[in-house]
């Protein structure tokens, strides 16, 4: 089986268990999900719901206990370190909550880092498009310490996009930003999906952030329990409230 056309990443009955015996904790309990191309998907859920674990497994940062993960045509499950590394380099882009820029490199060098690590040439045209979109043209020669938090995160976004990966994973990208900068980053992510066809998967617990997404998947206790398409912030907030209710049933998962 492979990720068929229209699907950028796919999880098939993925289980993830930490520890063993009585101390075993199940983070993911049989999650299956298709993440369509060119869409902006948000994964939501309370703390400990398994949303970060799911992202890490999809991105090849963590291995699964059972089940299969695909990114594009590549079966991630079973890859060794070298294969996983190359997958992350060539097919996946990352945006972290902590920006995680290299302080020794300029903004431009940070953006092109994934390409230079792989010894690839920078597609100048695309680079310019990305730079214009994030609005960093006049900041390219600055070091990260000379940039504001919002600017740093925009550099991180540009870094994730510049290699045109199969999927960009964003882990709480607005968690460390003020609302103004956060809104800019989210708008940029949505624009990348809609105008450039970039698949984006974002993990967040902020309903407002999730409202920028085309599709929101809700996780609880390692299960996908609900999903919404193009919701408003209020809808998301409402669903979250329901999730927190103790009597919420797992069986209510649509399409599970």
């Amino acid at each position: 089986m492979s990720a068929s056309d229209g699907v950028a990443a796919r999880a098939v009955d993925v289980w993830k268990t930490y520890g063993s015996g009585d101390a075993a904790v199940t983070a993911l309990a049989g999650v299956s999900v298709d993440l369509e191309k060119s869409r902006f998907t948000a994964i939501m859920g309370p703390s400990g719901s398994g949303k970060s674990t799911l992202m890490h497994c999809l991105a090849g940062l963590d291995d699964v206990t059972r089940g299969e993960v695909w990114v594009g045509d590549t079966k991630v499950t079973g890859l060794k370190d070298r294969g996983l590394t190359d997958l992350r380099r060539d097919k996946v882009g990352f945006i972290f909550q902590q920006f995680n820029l290299l302080p020794t490199l300029t903004a431009e060098e940070n953006i092109t880092l994934p390409l230079s690590i792989g010894g690839k040439k920078v597609d100048r045209e695309w680079f310019d498009v990305v730079i214009e979109t994030v609005g960093l043209r006049d900041r390219l020669s600055h070091r990260p310490t000379q940039l504001s938090g919002g600017q740093q995160q925009r550099v991180a976004c540009a870094r994730a996009l510049v290699s045109r990966p199969e999927v960009v994973f964003a882990d709480e990208p607005t968690g460390n930003l003020d609302s103004q900068s956060g809104a800019e980053v989210l708008a940029f992510l949505r624009k990348s999906a809609h105008e450039f066809g970039q698949t984006i998967v974002m993990v967040t617990h902020d309903p407002n952030a999730a409202s920028y997404a085309d599709r929101v998947i809700f996780l609880k206790d390692g299960h996908i329990v609900r999903e919404l398409l193009s919701p408003t912030a209020d809808e998301v907030l409402d669903t979250m409230k329901h999730l927190d209710a103790p009597d919420f049933e797992h069986s209510a998962v649509p399409g599970a």
């Binding site: 940062l61 070298r82 902590q98 290299l102 690590i117 870094r159």
Partner: peptide
């Protein structure tokens, strides 16, 4: 450590 983690995350090989 965190920088090294990032570099590995965005695809730097162990040998690199």
């Amino acid at each position: 450590t965190r920088e090294l983690g990032l570099l590995r995350a965005i695809g730097m090989r162990r040998a690199q």
